[in-house]
Each structure stands twice: as C-alpha cells, then as structure tokens.
C-alpha cells in the first residue's frame, strides 16, 4: 500500500481523544460522517474544511491518549485522512486504528512539517518526505496487526477466520 498526500501537522505531544472528537458530540450519534466534521475542532475550528482526501495527520508522541472511544480513529478515517504519523501512539488508540483499518505509523515526525508532501510505503516500511527529499524509517507493526490491517480491519479478519487467527 502506497499512500501519498499533504501533511497537516499538529506540533504537540499527547494529542488526546477529546481533541480528536469531543465528548460533547461523540455520545449523540454513531454516524461517523456527521461526527467527522468536528475532527480536531478544539485545536483548529476549520480543520475539517482543510482536509483533502488522502492527506495525513502528523503529530508528536503519545498520539491518541485518553478514552477508548473507537470514534477517534473512525472520524479521522471518515474525514478522508489516509494515515496518522506520530513519534508514538497510546495503546488503545493504536489497536482501534488497526482494527478499523486506519494505518498508524511510528516514525521521527520532527522531520516532517505542516504542508509537506509525503509518500508512505507500508510494505517497504518507509516514509518519503518529497518536499524535503528525506527518507524516514517506520517502526514495524507486530505480525498480528499486519494481518488485521491486511484483512481490512478486525471485522473482515473475524469474518474470514471465524475468530482470531494468531499464527
């Protein structure tokens, strides 16, 4: 899978699930298209309008800390974001992202700035910063997660194997 697009950089660590989708919206509906319009609203009111399909969200360490709400990766995906790149992720968000088919990539995001054009190659495990002409390596995913992601998320994985397929 090769993904290409423009970077929306949030230059902060610990970007939590309340920033991604605030509790004042997420409890009302499970219509993700509707919820996705409020993506990152408390950090940038017009963020949703700025996204073009295929764009990336880039941030510092511990991305997605806080709630277990799966609405967080889902609204990112439904807003048209193709992947999230961060120095590290909080564990529940990380699992939820893979389960719902949103690629999450751990790499040195100091080398990526807002507006940069980047290309992510998941098979080769690298990020190419086209604007800066840099290659960044990706921390590999556990095998189990690669399998779930390749199956298109946990729902598809579960349908395919009628349960978890560990080996």
């Amino acid at each position: 899978m090769v993904l290409k697009g423009k970077v929306h950089k949030f230059n902060i660590d610990d970007l939590n699930t309340d920033y991604i989708i605030s509790g004042r919206y997420k409890f009302k509906t499970i219509d993700m298209k509707e919820l996705s319009q409020h993506l990152m609203e408390d950090l940038d009111e017009s963020f949703y309008q700025k996204i073009k399909p295929g764009d990336f969200i880039v941030a510092g360490k511990n991305f997605g800390c806080g709630s277990s709400r799966e609405q967080a990766p889902l609204v990112i995906k439904f807003a048209g974001i193709s992947a999230v790149l961060a120095k590290s992720f909080a564990r529940i968000f990380f699992r939820n992202a893979i389960n719902t088919g949103l690629p999450v990539i751990e790499c040195d995001t100091d080398q990526i700035e807002n507006g940069d054009e980047i290309e992510v190659n998941l098979e080769e495990g690298q990020v190419k910063n086209i604007t800066k002409n840099l290659i960044l390596s990706i921390k590999p995913l556990p095998q189990m997660m690669i399998k779930i992601l390749n199956d298109g998320g946990l729902v598809e994985h579960f349908k395919k194997y009628k349960g978890f397929k560990i080996d």
Binding site: E70, N96, M144, L154, V155, F164
Partner: peptide, 20 residues
C-alpha cells in the same frame, strides 16, 4: 484493560482476546 468497540464485539462472539 480497556479496548475499543470492535475488539469488544470480537470478544462477545468468541470469549477470547489477543494480547501482547
């Protein structure tokens, strides 16, 4: 431990979960 909704759904069906 806390997990997301899709993991929970898989657990409701199978009674199992994978952990690192």
């Amino acid at each position: 431990t806390g997990l997301g909704s899709t993991d929970l759904a898989a657990a409701l069906i199978s009674g199992k979960m994978w952990f690192k």
